[in-house]
Computed example of a mutant assay.
Amino acid sequence: MNANSLVASSLSFASLALTATAAAAQDRPATPAQQESVEEAEEGEEIVVQATRTGRRVQDEPIRVEVLDREEIEEKIAMVPGNIAMLVNETPGLRVQVTSPALGAANVRVQGLKGRYIQILADGLPLYGGQTPSIGLLQIPPTDLGQVEIIKGAASALYGPSALGGVVNLVSRRPSPAQQGELLLNATSRGGQDVTAYNSGPLTDTLSYSLTGGFNRQDRQDIDGDGWANIPGYDRWTIRPRLFWEGASGAKAYLTVGALAEQRRGGTLPDRVVPDGSPFAQN
């Protein structure tokens, strides 16, 4: 027998030994520690959703709920810190539609359905949209969002006829056990400035708080020089304090109040007119 035959025989024996060892390992039952690690890997991070009326794990929900976590929200805040338009617009199946170009008003369409069929919620409450003077999509600051929950398709059984197209639930951030603070400054080449701040922390063993505030402004811009504002101008102040309580038995409650002041300016620029010779300013 030559050297090549000896090498081939050794390799064959080694492969048979490895196969036998692998088969024996598969036949042995997994230890409790191994089973626990596999279950944790399959489950991943526990995500609780509220858009289905009850706070349950997303794995246990009978309907599909998409969740955008804090990491994705922070990525969008770095680009557009003044509102949630980009956050919503870059989600598959959702599209932001401008409803008033002169003033920059917009709503969200889900799977092609009009904005009046989409319910936007704040912590499960219908505080946004639905009425003309209500807070719109471009006025909601994303600074204190913890996650965004999206139900695509009819959710009218949960929230009535205004949710025929779907639900977008904006869940606020919960304070961490340690004091936390954030400050974001932003400026654009089109004359926009944003200043947003967030602070949270514990007050007692059962009470904690969060405070969000910001100032956003935009110069009115006539990009094509026709005397009409392609980008409406605005000045907006927002502030929203929240108080959280969590009992020893696991019961939770929170109290929040918010204030927003905004002035928008669109239409024709000063000393400019529309084709009929009259100004058309919108404020």
Rank of each mutant, 00 (worst) to 15 (best):
T143W: 00
E66R: 05
P270K: 09
E90V: 05
R56S: 14
R57F: 13
N283K: 15
P142T: 07
A8Y: 00
T206Y: 07
L243P: 12
A106Q: 02
R109V: 10
Q180M: 06
R109T: 11
Y198M: 06
Y254N: 14
G213A: 14
G165S: 05
E39G: 13
A17C: 01
L184E: 05
D123E: 08
A102N: 07
N89W: 04
E42A: 15
A187S: 10
Q218F: 03
P62D: 07
R240N: 15
G227I: 03
N4D: 14
R53P: 05
P161K: 06
G115I: 06
T188W: 04
A154G: 12
F215K: 02
D205S: 14
Q221Y: 05
L103P: 03
S176Q: 11
D205M: 06
A17P: 01
R57C: 00
A187G: 08
P275Y: 11
G130A: 04
E72L: 09
P141I: 07
I135E: 08
E61G: 04
A25G: 09
S189Y: 04
L18F: 10
A102H: 00
D194M: 09
L138F: 14
E43H: 12
L125F: 12
T212P: 01
A251L: 15
I239K: 06
Q59R: 08
D219G: 04
S208F: 03
D271N: 15
T54G: 10
S100D: 13
T21K: 14
R265N: 14
R242C: 06
T256K: 12
E45V: 12
A155G: 06
L260V: 12
L87C: 02
L6P: 00
L203Q: 03
G160L: 10
G258T: 13
V98L: 07
P232C: 11
A106K: 03
V7Q: 03
P232R: 05
R174P: 02
L87W: 00
S278T: 13
R264D: 08
Q263L: 13
N4K: 11
T31C: 05
L137I: 08
S176N: 05
G214W: 02
E71P: 03
V80L: 08
Q179W: 14
G181Q: 11
E45P: 04
R109W: 11
E36Y: 09
D123S: 09
W237P: 02
A85G: 03
T52P: 06
V110D: 01
S249H: 14
G165C: 03
A163R: 00
R53S: 08
G192L: 00
